[in-house]
Design a protein around this nucleic acid. Structure first.
Lengths: 140, 140
DNA sequence: GATATATGCTTGCGTAATCAAGCATTATGC
DNA sequence: GCATAATGCTTGATTACGCAAGCATATATC
């Protein structure tokens, strides 16, 4: 039994860690009635310069399939935190935008989210967190 | 719109990254007929000193529920890569052990897994990988 | 312009996980 | 030593995804 490479241990630990993180963050967000994935959508949309984006781009960002995005967005539309924007140039596309209510919900949820995140990675110093983020950028 | 804290960006990037990692690793492992989660089970069992463990401990390691482990292990038992070991001290428990065939399968799958992992994190230097692993240990 | 192909999205179905409830078995309090 | 509680696991129902196929629209070829 030879021993594992560093890289494989990283991937394994990353998987286990991310599962714990997601569970804790999702738990906290459920108080606002949203899932972690839904939060990620709002986070992405909020930060867009043009504020609307196609489902395909969203899927790419989330690392999900197009069908996954369809089923993810549908209930968000129903409760009006997301709006459909038709693209006049291309009737196939229906873009997606955060509504006013969505922005409000996001800014509320963000407080909880920030809080749980600082708990989760709080054992790292500021400079360690910066370094970690650099590493993430490099492997992306 | 104030800006996000470092810690929340880390948690978000970690979620997105891990989703990509898991997909790529799972893809590669599917050539061996196993999922990433199944690989994690084998990885964990292989490295145990006593070589068998209760389902509860396994669930804890994986960050899964007990019922999740039940349904995860069942097919692995059926194809005989995992063996059930009854605990004479406690009839409620049924421990889990890697069979000979399981060990063989793991050592084959490991080659693929190591390969894809070194692709995934290969853009980090050795010392960066070590640092990353330290960070993971700290936040765990 | 008509046909073929590509693109954006949705739908049907399968899989992997969760939670809540339940069943055995073991441990505890009196 | 009997009732109650706790523990280990399984089962039923639900949820969140993926893949394959399909539909509508857009683009390319001729």
């Amino acid at each position: 039994m030879t021993h594992e490479s560093l890289s494989s241990i990283i991937v394994i630990q990353n998987a286990l860690l991310s599962s714990r993180f997601s569970k804790r963050a999702g738990n906290r967000l459920s108080a606002h009635g949203i899932s972690l994935t839904e939060y990620l959508v709002m986070h992405y949309l909020e930060r867009l310069p043009q504020n609307s984006v196609s489902r395909i781009e969203l899927a790419e960002y989330l690392g999900m399939s197009a069908s996954g995005v369809t089923r993810l967005i549908a209930p968000m539309e129903k409760i009006k935190i997301i709006e459909k924007v038709t693209n006049p140039r291309d009737a196939r596309q229906s873009q997606v935008r955060l509504s006013k209510a969505g922005q409000r919900l996001y800014s509320e949820a963000r407080i909880s989210f920030e809080h749980i995140c600082s708990e989760l990675v709080g054992s790292l110093s500021q400079s360690q967190q910066e370094k970690l983020l650099e590493f993430y950028a490099k492997v992306t």
